[in-house]
Design a protein around this nucleic acid. Sequence first.
DNA 1: CTGAAAGCGCTTACAG
DNA 2: CTGAAAGCGCTTACAG
Lengths: 352, 352
Amino acid sequence: MAPKPPKSTAAAGASPPSNGNQIARMKDVARLAGVTTMTVSRALRTPEKVSEETRLKVEEAVRRVGFIPNYAARSLVSQRSQVVVALFPTMMNSVFSGTIEELSRELALSGYHLLLGGTDFDIDQEEKLLSGFIGWRPAGIVVTGSVHTVATRHMLENANAPVTELWSLPKKPFDVAVGFSNHDATYQMTMSLHSWGYRRIGFLYVDYPRNDRAVDRKAGYRAALRDLGLTSRPEMIVPLPFEIEAGRAGLRRILEADPDADAVMCGSDTLAVGALMEALRLGLRVPQDIAISGFGDVELARELVPALTTVRIPRAEIGRRSAQIILQRIAGTYEGPSVVDCGFSIIRRESA
Amino acid sequence: MAPKPPKSTAAAGASPPSNGNQIARMKDVARLAGVTTMTVSRALRTPEKVSEETRLKVEEAVRRVGFIPNYAARSLVSQRSQVVVALFPTMMNSVFSGTIEELSRELALSGYHLLLGGTDFDIDQEEKLLSGFIGWRPAGIVVTGSVHTVATRHMLENANAPVTELWSLPKKPFDVAVGFSNHDATYQMTMSLHSWGYRRIGFLYVDYPRNDRAVDRKAGYRAALRDLGLTSRPEMIVPLPFEIEAGRAGLRRILEADPDADAVMCGSDTLAVGALMEALRLGLRVPQDIAISGFGDVELARELVPALTTVRIPRAEIGRRSAQIILQRIAGTYEGPSVVDCGFSIIRRESA
DNA sequence: CTGAAAGCGCTTACAG
DNA sequence: CTGAAAGCGCTTACAG
């Protein structure tokens, strides 16, 4: 690896833009085709409004110079950008990336590009990211959850763009919300565990300040215990960071709090993987000695040995619906509800 | 969930932009502060060139109207955008997301935003995505691997922006490459497995057409067997898609090809997780009955039971270095080599 | 079906 | 330290 000098930024010939600048502009295409820029613009955007002959000349010229329109100029003059901003707690985890991929795919079909940000579960970070992105004058904005800072709400109000809030079902959505009931999901999983014979159920969940999903999931667990006539001990409810490792520590915490615990419900598959692995390390049989359930149903959940019992979230559907709603709101054709419940389901596998 | 009509896109008051448009422009700030737009621009970008008094007036006005500059206008006039395009095979897998996060973080510190695309390991898809993104006139471009279509190379040449190719060490990098030797990594892992006593080693790898990493990893495996005086049977080299499930099928294929196989080296942690789980399902002890190794060292690798022996790739470092090189190339200050080797290491854990 | 004019919201020289 | 002028690369009315 000889430290040879880096190549110059300047393109090495090959392109024939008529001016000093390397990148072809619409003007260059127009000159080559012997028409004006409006005609080029029309040939590209509304080819049916241009004669066959002109269209062919323009297409040939576009090909010759490798012309791709400048989006900055386009959004400036047309007063609408092709950008949709999407903010998720993290892009790293499979649970969100399934939604992101669908969102991105669906928006791309209509020519919109996704500007992604990871908030690390921090609404101050969300505010910071949004203020950085808002300068793109996004055509739509996607955020996770329904709790935001005052400044974030101000920016969302003034952005003049449709907003979707994902992953929960707020009472008062900012604009349109697409999600599922976090409360009902943990409520039903707790009930399911009970119906399968488990009685001493601990709860591990991902906790960050001002996180509505965490609050709802914890409330669902508590409500179920109450309805079952069981008392919920605070030590059996363990807030944790969003890491596999944390799930391992969480399992130990539960076993310390109650050596006879027979089930650990996790508010995230990530924690469940950690809890499951720690159980195996401790020589416990799952589910005979301790049952474990997750939340999310990521690809890994069904592949583990034992396979993970979990809450299935329609991740792809949330992304797709969110994209469709954004597009329809831009077009002014959305007629659906302001809260879209995509539901969830309890998936029983081997671990409980 | 009553299907109530969606709220109007128009912001509900609260913002005082002087015209019909809801979003404040620099002109609105200028009027409020009693100066011209250039002074506002200067107060924002080069505050030291403006009087204390003016600066305070402008800052107050900016706050009052919630002004955020329009990036489209800014990039159009300054002839440089704040966008960096990055194309990865997939954004879903932890192996890439570690790099993406670092890249994003490092670029954000300098005010650049990342426009991300997932190519699904398909260089035609890469071409399509790039042609969609190039209209943003990116200030830098990051791609994975060193094999691209002719049209992609043309676009990269004419983009007038620094380009980094990640994840391999090409002989002739397009501009600057940041990666590691895929060949040497599988070569050394094969050698390591041999030194630990394994003799009948199969190889599972992620294969997509025209993928340089796959070719190099396979070549490394073959070279090691040759140097060890072992023959490599074609049935022991199994190309697979990039899924956990595929790793399970792969393990079975190896055991069919050689019932006495004692190790399976995987060209990806994703495949290794599948192979490991399938081995456990079949009642095999890992590593006593069959050893398994991965590639990537994702978070999950060290948490599994048994913990996964694997090749550690400096994922975050690749992202960081790549961002730094892009920034230095933009500034014209990069002096490093055109191929940056970030290395790798063999991590021995329980599975081999 | 095609073009001349105006302008989107900023920043970059250049004056003063 | 501040401003008048020009213009980035397109698209949107409006003529013809």
